[in-house]
Design a binder for these strands. Structure first.
Lengths: 338, 338
DNA sequence: CTGGTTCATGTAAGCGCTTACATATCACTC
DNA sequence: GAGTGATATGTAAGCGCTTACATGAACCAG
């Protein structure tokens, strides 16, 4: 255990050995490495050479301790299946990179004890972005918030906790309206409004579109947001358990699995029944008919979270109200358009 | 700039303030927090209470410095579009979590200076996994290797650098054989074998399948692995620039975009021309005809990388030869099967 | 009692950096 | 040629932990 007394362990080089090798003080080494202060060119070269010859890599932890911040952002996501989270993460990482922040990722889906994981994360980053449905209890988020800047992405609007999200209600209203304006009169909302604010707001938009037209909205069909749940619902629909001439699904995975199952059973989409989704995943472009859906600025959302984290770390005050990014209706043909 | 003199910054609690608050020494606080040594139950409670009241979060950097490792793994990926990298990352993260390692992610696609990014990464993790096509120059990988354990995922078999990968050659041979056994005699390989070892081996399998049957393999059509490149190739194919009754594409994105373009132009797949891919992305299940492809154990590959990293950090010697995970042929109907 | 054990806790020495401050050097100026 | 500024470098004090070692208390055998 411990150091196996390997006399020449690789990472043996420290700022001290570099300083000695270069014949300068550690302060000077630090200065050339930080590129900060004025250092004579000759000295700089000596140091750089020494760094090179010794294969020196600074120890991040030592620097973090000295400068008293980690230069890292934490991101807590439920998982990464489907393009949504991946895109969000890409946006987050890209922006963090611009800001010279590392990103430490925690996926709650793979954890048995996510609270411990998040607590542990707080130990090594300056600020944390939590995805709304990452199933972190509200009080844990508040506990985090008491220690580090936190922003919640697409989550419940907690009290003092900064939030960023994509617009849902307005586009949902527009999408539902679009379907209704095709003359569909029995539009079913598929998805559980209680599963989170995203779906809740999409459902609210659906209801609003009906109200706009003096129509009654049916009760939502509460299913989870996965392909399997979609397929199961499709079977129930085919069995006559529901009646509908259009389905407004809470996300594309649901929409796609349902649409495919319906087609496999000989139904015509959108002839017999229209289907629309939400997210504009890659598959939605490829299926026939193309899936009408809503595109979210997911990349930008991730980037926004990273930006806000950085600003909070820099001492900017938290924003009162959630920042909302606009979404965009993507009309293809599954809704009944030619 | 710098600390805006916020008088009551949250994270004021240190091990010292906790110790004082609890009326014990910092050593004792450390002991109860590490759960390690024997501490009297009463003392433990006092400390825990103090921790709670002060909202104390240990500073990871200080611990890392003291224990002399980061308890974090680095992962370098080119990007996250498509399910492949996301799945890999999920596998990696899940295994790292089991091993109590944080994961620090770097996406080279978003970087202007990936070498600096990787160097910076080396500063804060104990070991690094690099995806083969993350476009990290070989000498940079070697430089890393000189300092920390490194494993390359699906990359060029460097000299002393441990590698993990999914099997390519055998399944490619099987897949190409399957297509040839449908009686196709002009099977084109679409993708650039020089773009990396993955595609190279898939192409090698394609060639081998031909050789197995005493057939001549055509020259590969060298296109990059994106939808756009696929669409462009499809246009050239439709223009008569190539002649083929089957396409073996280097990945699914290529296959899907080509297949769709062909169908849009009125061609029958697989009637006129068969198309097969590689990766088994979600879309491949949904398109009609279903895309015949090869499924890789991507999740396991990520997990394997994390495991190996951990073992290397623990002092286990690097393995000589690459570990290869088996892949699986997924036969649907785009190949000509009923 | 006394001396040896055992067990719980405290003391203090780092871990490898950054940076405020001190110092040394050199070039001018008067 | 002493005084004054720049400018380059060195000195040393932390940053907040872990942990080897020292200390003290409590207990027990003889």
């Amino acid at each position: 255990m411990g150091k196996p007394a390997s006399p020449e362990a690789k990472p043996g080089a420290t700022i001290y050995s570099v300083a000695e090798h270069a014949g300068v003080s550690i302060a000077t080494v630090s200065r050339v490495l930080q590129g900060a202060a004025v250092v004579a060119e000759a000295t700089r070269q000596k140091v750089l050479t020494a760094v090179d010859e010794l294969g020196y890599t600074p120890l991040g932890a030592a620097r973090s301790l000295a400068v008293r911040h980690h230069e890292a952002h934490g991101l807590v996501l439920p998982e990464l299946s489907g393009p949504y989270y991946a895109e969000l993460l890409m946006g987050f990482e890209a922006r963090a990179a611009e800001l010279d922040q590392s990103v430490v990722l925690v996926l709650t889906g793979s954890r048995t004890d996510m609270v411990a994981a998040v607590r542990q994360l707080a130990t090594r980053v300056d600020a944390i972005a939590v995805f709304g449905s990452a199933a972190i209890p509200a009080d844990v988020v508040r506990m985090l918030r008491a220690k580090k800047p936190v922003v919640v992405i697409a989550g419940e609007p907690h009290d003092g906790i900064e939030a960023v999200a994509a617009e849902n209600l307005g586009s949902a209203r527009e999408l539902a309206g679009h379907v209704l304006d095709h003359g569909r009169r029995r539009v079913l909302f598929v998805g559980d409004p209680d599963s989170g604010p995203d779906v809740r707001n999409r459902h609210a938009g659906y209801v609003a579109a009906h109200r706009d037209r003096g129509l009654d909205a049916a009760e939502p069909v509460r299913v989870a947001l996965s392909e399997a749940d979609g397929a199961a619902f499709a079977q129930r629909l085919l069995a006559g358990e529901h009646e509908a001439d259009a389905l407004m699904c809470a996300n594309d995975e649901l929409a796609l699995s349902i649409m495919t199952a319906l087609q496999d059973a000989g139904r015509d989409v959108p002839g017999d029944i229209a289907v629309v989704g939400w997210d504009d995943v890659m598959t939605s472009r490829y299926v026939r008919p193309g899936l009408t859906t809503v595109r979210q600025p997911v990349h930008e959302l991730g980037a926004l979270a990273a930006s806000r984290l950085h600003e909070l770390v820099s001492g900017e005050p938290p924003r009162e109200d959630a920042q909302t990014l606009p979404t965009q209706l993507v009309v293809r043909t599954s809704c009944g358009c030619a």
